[in-house]
Nucleic acid binder design. Sequence first.
DNA 1: TGCCATTTTTAGATTAGTCTAATTTTGTTT
DNA 2: AAACAAAATTAGACTAATCTAAAAATGGCA
Lengths: 216, 216
Amino acid sequence: MFTRSEEDHLKAIHTLSVTGTKASTSAISERLDTKASSVTDMLKRLAEKGLVAHEPYHGAKLTTSGRKAALVLIRRHRLWETFLVDKLGFRWDEVHEVAEQLEHVSSEKLIDRLDAHLGHPRFDPHGDPIPDKNGRMITRKLLPLSRCIAGDHVELSSVRNGTDALLHYLTRKGIALGVAITITATHEFDGSMELKLGDGRILSVSREVAEQLMVQ
Amino acid sequence: MFTRSEEDHLKAIHTLSVTGTKASTSAISERLDTKASSVTDMLKRLAEKGLVAHEPYHGAKLTTSGRKAALVLIRRHRLWETFLVDKLGFRWDEVHEVAEQLEHVSSEKLIDRLDAHLGHPRFDPHGDPIPDKNGRMITRKLLPLSRCIAGDHVELSSVRNGTDALLHYLTRKGIALGVAITITATHEFDGSMELKLGDGRILSVSREVAEQLMVQ
DNA sequence: TGCCATTTTTAGATTAGTCTAATTTTGTTT
DNA sequence: AAACAAAATTAGACTAATCTAAAAATGGCA
């Protein structure tokens, strides 16, 4: 259907859009680790195919069919991540790169069967929602832990931009999705927070980390 | 590690070699549905990388490292086929094309975990042996059903060159791997054979089909 | 309002992989 | 052994995807 590079660009534009960032040429090129001129070329090609609206000098937006294609890719990626963790016993910090390859395998039947095999999961191992066959997914209003104040009782629901390093760090600290968190103290001067977990353990996290832990 | 096209060529050369055919430029190009000149180019590239020995005008042979690479690809392909049938409920005549894509996903850990998840299968859904981590696999001396004579009692062990159409045909006839077969008659004039299956069913197969059914 | 730094696009080159058409080699056949 | 058909290689062109360097556009600020 699409080339690997086209798919990578569609996904990048989608991700930027949903996080509220304008999908500018430079933002896309940074995400894909290519040069801006390469992105311009690809935007032209995608525009010709009717997948993006490219306003020269003013970034790109997905068209309806471009968005549909991007959601298929996100569905594939998140289902494969779930498979790797649930069925093959990978850790959540090991799955991204492999899923990045698997998502380009194009077979609707494969993905639908995989979905069923996994029990139609609604969230992937990082807490991100998995689009269904029609591109629909659960939307939750989450806020970063860094916005909570002392005394709040919350639950860890997803990890934003979870680099493998961050995920590994959390794993080592014994922090997993679904864990109950009580904020015991927040420190103004550096933004770090003291937490009490559901099992009674006490720990402290930096502001950077607290900004990526999305809670409910 | 290798490009998709390099991998396709390695696998084609390997398959030709093990079936006793010389891996000539034209034989490879026919398998890959490309032109002979494209194959010549690729053989040069693979020879530079030390994966094949290319004797111009006299075909190609895999080097030790080329053979090792090809076996990795065959291992991946057959494990994925097994996964599709055993875990996702695909029919054996539906898996080839999808496995053809999945085999290019490169992650040793993925394949080893998949192997374990499937219970270290020794044969794929078509009866072909699956190489282990070290490239070793079971070798069986099979012969085509067409070489059997009336009165022989045999077991269907694999289907050679199983095109999707042939596999689908066998499925419709209720013929599966492992089925016991007694040859009740062979017809000289067109090579067709009369068979009695383990469950008592009687059927007749053409010479072409009998040449592809490998028995023990 | 006009200048300037930043961003984006354009122009032109490069690489991998493919093709067609022409040339060369091989090996069979008379 | 010479000729010829088949197979393989070479030559040259094309496309997709990338890059660098140069030119153009944008938008904030003096």
